[in-house]
């Protein structure tokens, strides 16, 4: 369960940034009074154009940065007051996630399992589960630097899930990936839903959203401009296509 209430994030602007942005404001408000809830067993999609505030929101949820105002609860844990406890519940994956090139998948997974205090037996069981699910056995001992993008993505997926998080945060998880590699992510997101996990993912690809999500919110210029179920979104559409409707809502905001 993710509960976001009255979330704000402001970044201080340097003189140079003010000049570049043509503003006299001392701060830039990247997220402006955002509230939503994501329920277990459902997939919540945060949609928005580039620079809308999606990544900033997801970074706050996953405790990487702190909100200026507002609150975030992960499974009832306040992420600002108790970030380490919240982190144990979170799995975080982005399309640009890097891996340690000089380590092997086995070593990387062990590292993150140890950081998450995963008991040895659970670690082995989970690792084998994902190795089989994603067909990873043949490259488990190869260094990451020798793997293809698809193989790396599989390692990233397993790394995200190794501590069996209750909440999984995907920040544009398929960006820059080919369709075959992106398919693994889609598979993972569906798998998370089946396991009754809370899933939030950001995207601007409507086909992906259509395929996966149960609820969605559209964010632009830091503000939520739409928030409802995917079924209602489809039902209330004024444009011909999902993408057209998304563009219409963003433009009218």
């Amino acid at each position: 369960m993710i509960k976001v209430e009255g979330l704000f994030k402001e970044f201080k602007l340097s003189k140079k940034q003010k000049q570049e942005n043509g503003t006299t404001d001392d701060v830039y408000r990247a997220v402006n009074d955002v509230s939503f809830e994501c329920k277990p067993g459902s997939i919540f999609s945060l949609l928005g154009p580039n620079g809308a505030g999606k990544t900033t929101t997801l970074r706050m949820i996953s405790t990487m940065i702190q909100p200026t105002r507002g609150s975030i609860e992960i499974c009832g844990i306040d992420v600002v007051k108790n970030p380490n406890e919240a982190r144990k519940k979170i799995g975080f994956l982005t399309g640009s996630t890097g891996l340690y090139e000089r380590l092997t998948p086995d070593e990387i997974l062990k590292y993150f399992a140890d950081l998450n205090d995963v008991p040895k037996a659970d670690f082995e069981k989970r690792k084998e589960y994902y190795y089989s699910l994603l067909d990873m056995h043949h490259f488990r001992s190869k260094k990451i630097g020798q793997l293809s993008t698809g193989m790396k993505q599989k390692v990233s997926i397993t790394r995200t899930m190794i501590h069996d998080p209750e909440v999984v945060v995907f920040d544009e998880p398929t960006s820059g990936l080919d369709v075959i590699t992106a398919e693994n992510i889609i598979k993972l997101i569906k798998n998370c839903k089946e396991q009754n996990k809370t899933v939030i993912f950001s995207s601007h690809i409507m086909t992906e959203v259509d395929l996966l999500c149960d609820d969605l919110a559209i964010i632009t210029k830091g503000k939520l401009v739409y928030k409802d179920s995917m079924a209602n979104f489809r039902g209330q559409m004024k444009a011909d296509t999902l993408t057209g409707e998304f563009i219409r809502i963003v433009n009218e905001a």
């Binding site: 982190r87 996630t97 890097g98």
Partner: peptide
């Protein structure tokens, strides 16, 4: 630069 820091920062270590 390699994009691994973000992952580390979301792990339960301060």
């Amino acid at each position: 630069e390699r994009g691994t820091l973000e992952t580390l920062l979301t792990s339960p270590v301060n």
